[in-house]
Amino acid sequence: MATVPWDGAIPELLREHLGAAVLDTHLYVDQPFAVLTLAAMLPALELLHAEADFDYLVDITAVDYPKRECRFDLVYIVYSHSRNQRVRLKAQVPANQKPLSAVPIFLGANWLEREVFDMFGIEFAGHPNLTRILMPDEWSGFPLRKDYGIIQMDNTWVKNNLGIESGQ
């Protein structure tokens, strides 16, 4: 299956306001997605929220590509109730750059960003309370990174808190 170009009001709106920061707009299996630079991500969310009525942040997540120069893909899914349309925005996260928190636009981003931080170690600048959410606070390591093994764990934490040598 191949991607097909995505035309319409939304990609035009993005290109008009963000110009060259919009790297790619395509459809894959009928699902629209836009690839942006990381710096343009928050402006794009703001724009879609204010101008195109994308009022519901469905999800934020990340994908780890350890061999790539910019290791992580950050993925935002937004939905517009009035348009009944769902759009996916993606950006690569350069090593020296922190993504901005989307909490000022969507309150629901709070826990979603905390989970991305917890699992991938991506820090969001301006987040009100960027702490681990699913893993214990003192845990070291980020489980959803590709170099974190499936049975790997923080043995020190396990020893100190559970009083056993290993959880396996």
């Binding site: 299956m1 894959y28 299996v29 699902q31 469905v58 999800d59 997540t61 993925v75 899914i77």
Partner: peptide, 20 residues
């Protein structure tokens, strides 16, 4: 599945349940 990505969601009893 061929290389690519997709997000599909359904109306679960508790709300939108999605798989990416």
């Amino acid at each position: 599945p061929p290389v690519g990505e997709a997000y599909v969601s359904i109306e679960a009893p508790k709300g939108e349940l999605g798989y990416f």
